[in-house]
């Protein structure tokens, strides 16, 4: 059992659970939960659970959970396997967010977030025609950097922004180098830098 969390965290995590289970843009609720479960199992070194996901989707979730340093040939194989780039963006978004939640819960000594029951319904299929490849492996609206990374699937970009605010800082708060949010900005950025170094992420 971990420490009690205030409403900022619990409300944010409740929103994340609800999003996880709902139909997305390209994946059903059941597929979204399966992607999350696959990523979680891979990160924990367990066998991935059986699901309706294709082998390409399973490989994507597994790989992103344990070694996200992917390249063009790997992406090409994924597309050949039936996971198009826009579906990949949504899958990537789900894997990244469960990695955040699971790491957080592990860190505070809490039991892992219970994965939700998938909600019925069909994916929206709402495409973003203005998203295009601009130096990244995936299409983006605008030059690829953190705020635009998921713009090919706007609901996932919004979800990222929400969880980013809950766990770290909002876009507005990021402009405040003097902010104190339980820790000083310097302490917060020290943690961020150390995490990134350990993950071999040099962005």
């Amino acid at each position: 059992m971990g420490p009690l969390l205030d409403a900022t965290y619990t409300d944010g995590l409740d929103r994340e659970r609800t999003r996880m289970a709902a139909p997305g843009t390209w994946w059903t609720g059941a597929e979204r939960v399966a992607i999350v479960a696959t990523a979680r199992a891979a990160r924990e070194g367990r066998a991935v659970p059986s699901s309706s996901l294709t082998s390409a989707a399973v490989e994507a979730a597994r790989r992103l959970a344990v070694d996200p340093h992917v390249d063009q040939p790997w992406i090409d194989d994924l597309v050949q396997g039936g996971v198009d780039l826009f579906s990949y963006v949504e899958l990537l978004a789900l894997v990244t967010r469960i990695s955040a939640v699971d790491s957080f819960f592990f860190g505070i000594g809490a039991h892992p977030l219970v994965l939700p029951t998938p909600a019925p319904g069909r994916p929206t299929g709402k495409s973003v025609p203005e998203a295009e490849i601009q130096g990244a492996l995936v299409p983006t609206v605008g030059v690829p950097f953190p705020p635009t990374a998921l713009t090919a699937v706007p609901p996932e970009a919004e979800a990222l922004g929400d969880l980013h605010t809950v766990l770290y800082l909002s876009m507005l708060e990021m402009g405040d180098l003097h902010i104190v949010k339980d820790l000083t900005r310097v302490q917060i950025e020290f943690i961020a830098a150390r995490t990134s170094l350990l993950n071999d992420c040099f962005y």
């Binding site: 992917v70 955040a100 790491s103 990244a136 995936v138 950097f145 917060i188 943690i191 993950n199």
Partner: peptide
Amino acid sequence: AVRAAAVVGNFEMMNRLMDGIGV
């Protein structure tokens, strides 16, 4: 301490995101 764990979580997310899009 809870905030520290939360920040780690956030950057586990962001690191995977930027690596996952190849930037």
